[in-house]
Write a protein that binds this DNA or RNA. Structure first.
Length: 501
DNA sequence: TTCAGCGTTGCTTAG
DNA sequence: TCTAAGCAACGCTGA
């Protein structure tokens, strides 16, 4: 008979620190003298679902997690295959008695949970699920709001104002040898390389953001040491087109769970304490609260990542246009600022929040009239910090489908970038075809006379695309379409509402 | 039921 | 270099 095991299933909690579910598993293994097996499930076809950069970040995070687990006298076991297929077999082989896991609201995990929990119930495996990916228990917040979703940020803040946030959990005690399995050195459970997953590392550009908990904590501590900077932080005053990020880039670490949102919260509280500091929504704490806001909305709304069947989302008749979508996704719209942003995203996996505003507005209500769902899929592929709730929530915001309604405020692909980068240095970096263009034409190269284009070595329509739409004209037409969609939406709503007369 | 007040981050022009 | 007004006028919250 195989010795009984305790499993902690890592998903979006790729860390040792402040991991309540992991601590539960360790305690359980120690108390019962069972074998502890921390696992991560990876589908060999994963490269078809997530982009190369994010996959590299994930593999680095797993490697770091394994290193940190070994310091605790255990390791990470990689299970290959679909979780719903491979886990039942593995649990039988290992004689698993106890499973701990973090609660994740991404539908992908919710669907897996249903299958795995049913299997566990039928096989007398005790399952412990812990809410630890957010600062607050979003279900509790929804309950406090009478089961409905808070539709404004201010409303959300009022709901969490008096909520206590539990302290972080420290985990540094080494595991007893009796919890170690015999096959701890087996290569059968090693982390696959990028090559094994079908990605040639040589086709990726130099890694700008190294994945993993160790890097996450270093980055957090580096920024928290800059107390004045933290206290003065105001998001709208940071630049979307600086050559190096003007914000912390902690997001990929939080989305993968390399960094605990609660740890970030407590560190921020420490830095703010006793000092004059900026406030939400613009402060750093405010940024963390935006994440909580979208998680609450995502948890409380059916079909949150879709337009149809989504109660918070205004129905807008977007048009399918693969040519526009592709030009946008590849950074070939002919608008240098938009293209620079999309190329930075593709190369580096991260762009500034306001840059996301610019390109999301451009794809949807601003210029191309393509559905936010299509844009969200491209972001899912390319962003290191992809997060189900935040991605859908922000796309709805920018397309004025939910949370934000002033559709007549449209970002200009020419004017917006100039505010923080007059010379167009950011464009020169990411749209290198235009790097020799005179500043006068860097945001509007189609206006450059032929002689200037020739002198700069880049002819518009040959070396760099002609702009695919005329922003000045089309954004006004789109505003009319938005107005019509809102009007229709309002009529439908008033029909649904029961009338007293 | 109604309505004033308000909302992280628009652009352009005039002064 | 900064501020304010005009553009045309949204929905949510709470009294």
């Amino acid at each position: 008979m195989v010795s009984p095991s305790v499993v902690h299933w890592f998903r979006l909690d790729l860390r040792i620190h402040d991991n309540l579910a992991l601590r539960n598993a360790i305690n359980e293994a120690e108390n019962r003298k069972h074998i502890l097996r921390p696992i991560y499930v990876i589908d060999p076809e994963v490269k078809n679902r997530i982009g190369k950069n994010r996959l590299r970040f994930l593999i680095q995070s797993l490697q770091n997690l394994d290193t940190n687990l070994r310091k605790l006298n255990t390791r990470l076991y990689i299970i290959k295959g679909m979780a719903t297929v491979s886990l039942p077999k593995v649990f039988e082989n290992w004689n698993v008695k106890y499973l701990s896991v973090q609660v994740d609201i991404d539908p992908e995990y919710v669907a897996q949970d249903e299958v795995i929990e049913k299997f566990c119930e039928e096989n007398d495996i005790f399952v412990v699920k812990r809410v630890q990916h957010t600062v607050y228990d979003v279900q509790g917040i929804l309950k406090k709001n009478n089961g409905s979703v808070p539709l404004t940020y201010q409303k959300f803040l009022s709901l969490v104002r008096d909520q206590q946030v539990r302290e972080c959990i420290e985990l540094n005690k080494k595991l007893s040898d009796c919890c170690k399995p015999e096959d701890i050195e087996s290569n059968d459970y090693d982390i696959p390389s990028l090559e094994e997953l079908g990605i040639e590392e040589s086709c990726l550009i130099e890694c700008k953001y190294q994945g993993g908990e160790t890097e996450a904590l270093n980055r957090l501590n580096m920024y928290m040491a800059k107390k004045q900077w933290v206290c003065a932080f105001e998001k709208p005053n940071t630049s979307p087109n600086s050559l190096e990020p003007s914000t912390t880039v902690l997001s990929p670490y939080i989305s993968h769970g390399c960094l605990s949102a609660k740890l970030f919260y407590h560190k921020l509280k420490q830095v703010e304490c006793g000092n004059r500091h900026s406030e939400p929504p613009v402060s750093l704490m405010g940024q963390l609260m935006w994440r909580e806001f979208y998680y609450t909305a995502g948890a409380g709304t059916k079909n949150f990542d879709k337009m149809v069947g989504n109660s918070v989302c205004t129905q807008i008749p977007w048009k399918k246009n693969d040519a526009y979508l592709q030009a946008w996704a590849e950074g070939k719209t002919g608008y240098p600022f938009v293209d620079a942003i999309m190329r930075q995203l593709r190369q580096e996996g991260w762009i500034h929040h306001l840059a996301r505003h610019m390109v999301a507005c451009f794809l949807t209500r601003g210029d191309l009239w393509v559905s936010w769902e299509d844009g969200a899929k491209v972001f899912e592929d390319l962003l290191l910090d992809y997060d189900w709730s935040l991605n859908a929530g922000n796309w709805m915001w920018l397309s004025a489908s939910a949370f934000f309604y002033k559709y007549f405020r449209v970002y200009s692909p020419v004017a917006f970038g100039k505010k923080t980068d007059k010379e167009g240095m950011y464009i020169r970096k990411y749209v290198s075809e235009l790097k020799k263009y005179p500043t006068e034409f860097i945001y509007e190269p189609w206006k450059a006379p032929k002689s200037v284009q020739t002198a700069a070595g880049c002819t518009i329509g040959v070396d760099y695309p002609k702009r695919i739409v005329d922003h000045d004209k089309i954004h006004k037409e789109n505003m009319q379409k938005m107005s019509a969609a809102y009007k229709l939406n309002k009529e439908k709503k008033s029909l649904k509402r029961p009338r007293s007369d």
